[in-house]
Each structure stands twice: as structure tokens, then as C-alpha cells.
């Protein structure tokens, strides 16, 4: 057989060729085009022209861009934090539950099956000012005096999109955290118990350090995803009110499809990618620091 005569290293190269091909064709070329277009004035009304860094400079000075950047950071930080705050207790409880654990794990995963765009609709319905169940609950327990229009006010609208986004991300984060928690040996806790450590000390000195890898990986994936995914915003607020939830992804989309300025859109995309890589770099630094 001819295959056998190929040396191992060549074999590896051949076998990974389809992957490499995808890598170059699917990502390399689009990336090159993206960067090239970002240096052009490229819209439908004027002739296409090379303008150097003008698009980047314009955006940097643009109030709308800077506000969108700020909102993006609020959005992704809020979503990641909320995801973690829900996922950690869930994972911790699941790791201690023996009876019915499998059923509970399946149930916890359900929101993952909800497309973000649908999550936006669901929460939009629950937050509805006139008929929303959340308003009813809060008014009933006396938290609000009367119905609040969550989606219609800048402050609460941001909260609403963060909730709609985080809700679908909790299951993934829970599984990863759970994986980290279950990998820790019981004996460590038992010896800590004998030393009289309370739960806070155990969390601080055993759980968090040992489950750090999976938790950080989960946080990385959650952050990067919520940083760049605008589906929930798209279906819930469309960036409003008064651009209160207008993130970079929405700006990018507007440049492509409302204002038809591809050069600017490309520059926004490049900024977006750079910031995303920066966030990732921070996590990876912590992940590898040891």
C-alpha cells in the first residue's frame, strides 16, 4: 500500500489538509478582504477610493462609536457576570446532589436550546409593560407601585437585554464549572473538614484554585460570545431606546445595511476583532499564569 510509505509528518500534513484549506479559504481570505476594505471609502454613491486610516480615525472621533463601545463593554461584562453568578451556585449544587442528579442536569440545560433571537422575544413578552408577567409578579409582591416599561427606558432596557442574553448562556457555563468541581478529589475536602475549615475557606483555598481552568475557559467563551453576539438585542430593543443598548455589533450592521458604507463597516469590524482578542488575551494570561 502506498499510504504506508508516507512518513508520519507528511501523513499528518496530508490528513490535516482539508482543515488547513478551510482555515485559509474560510478565514484567511475574508480577513484579508476585511482589512483591505477598511482602508477604502467604499459606498454606493461615491467612487471607491483608497483613504488610508481615515475610517479608523473617523470612528475614533465619532461619538456614536465611542458610546457604542462603552455599551458593548457594559453589556458583555453584565452578561458574563450574571451568567457566572447563576452558573456557579447551580454547578455547586449539582455537584452535591446525588438523587435525581441526571434529571436536574438535563433540565438545567433547556435554555441552551433556545435561540438567542427567540430568547429576546420571550423576555420581551415577560417584560411587556402592559401584560408582562414580571410586572405582575413585582407589583403583587409590592416591589413596584405600578407597571414599569422595562424595554422603553434606557437603564432597564440594558438590564433586560443582559438578562435575555445571560439566560441562554448559563447552561454551558454550568457544565464547565461542574466539570471543574467534579474533578476535585473528595479527600481534599475531608481533610479540610478535619482541620475545621468552613465553606468559605474551602471555596477560597480548594475549590476556586483547583477548578480555575474550566471556570476561566467557561468565562472566556461566555465573554467572547456575549461581546460579539447581538441577537438578543436585535430582537428585544434593536439598540434603543435612545441608543441605550446600541452596541458595536449594531453599529457594524447599520453601516453595512442601513447606511451602506462598507469601508466604515470594515473598520468597525476590525476594532471589534481587536477588542475581542484583547479580552481573550487577558483570560489566557490568567489561565497560563502559574
Amino acid at each position: 500500500m502506498k499510504m504506508r510509505n508516507i512518513p508520519d509528518s507528511k501523513f499528518g500534513m496530508l490528513l490535516s489538509l482539508p482543515g488547513l484549506f478551510l482555515l485559509v479559504l474560510w478565514v484567511g481570505i475574508p480577513l484579508l478582504i476585511l482589512i483591505s476594505v477598511s482602508f477604502l471609502r467604499f459606498n454606493v454613491l461615491e467612487p471607491t477610493q483608497f483613504i488610508g486610516f481615515d475610517n479608523y480615525i473617523h470612528l475614533f472621533k465619532d461619538r456614536v462609536f465611542r458610546n457604542a463601545l462603552l455599551r458593548t463593554i457594559t453589556f458583555f461584562a453584565g452578561s458574563t457576570l450574571l451568567t457566572f453568578l447563576l452558573a456557579y451556585p447551580t454547578a455547586w449544587s449539582l455537584s452535591r446532589i446525588r438523587k435525581g442528579g441526571t434529571t436536574l442536569r438535563t433540565l438545567v440545560m433547556f435554555p441552551w436550546a433556545v435561540p438567542l433571537i427567540v430568547s429576546g422575544f420571550i423576555w420581551g413578552w415577560m417584560f411587556n409593560a402592559a401584560y408582562g408577567v414580571i410586572n405582575h409578579l413585582f407589583v403583587t409582591i409590592g416591589l413596584f407601585e405600578s407597571n414599569i416599561n422595562f424595554i422603553g427606558q434606557s437603564g432597564t432596557a440594558m438590564l433586560a437585554v443582559v438578562i435575555a442574553d445571560a439566560w441562554t448562556r448559563v447552561p454551558f457555563m454550568t457544565i464547565l464549572t461542574l466539570a471543574g468541581l467534579e474533578a476535585i478529589s473528595r479527600t481534599l475536602y475531608e481533610s479540610a473538614d478535619m482541620d475545621g475549615a468552613d465553606i468559605f475557606q474551602k471555596t477560597r483555598y480548594i475549590t476556586l484554585p483547583l477548578a480555575k481552568g474550566p471556570i476561566l475557559t467557561g468565562l472566556l467563551i461566555t465573554s467572547v460570545f456575549s461581546f460579539r453576539t447581538i441577537d438578543a438585542i436585535f430582537s428585544l430593543t434593536k439598540g434603543g431606546p435612545a441608543r441605550g443598548t446600541y452596541v458595536l455589533g449594531m453599529l457594524n450592521l447599520d453601516y453595512i445595511y442601513n447606511y451602506i458604507e462598507f469601508g466604515r463597516a470594515a473598520a468597525v469590524s476590525v476594532y471589534l476583532a481587536l477588542i475581542c482578542l484583547l479580552i481573550a488575551a487577558v483570560y489566557i494570561y490568567f489561565l497560563l499564569k502559574e
Binding site: L45, V64, Q153, S154, G240, P241, A242, R243, G244, Y246, D254, N258, Y259
Partner: peptide, 20 residues
């Protein structure tokens, strides 16, 4: 004129901020 969509978005935003 062309560009009105962008102008409208700007007005809508400022309107919202000054209304509250």
C-alpha cells in the same frame, strides 16, 4: 436627500436623551 436614515437615527437618539 441620501443619508437621511443616518440623520434620523441621530435625531431619534438625541430626542430620547433630552426627553428623559
Amino acid at each position: 436627500p441620501p443619508g437621511s436614515m443616518k440623520a434620523n437615527d441621530t435625531l431619534i437618539e438625541y430626542f430620547g436623551r433630552s426627553a428623559i
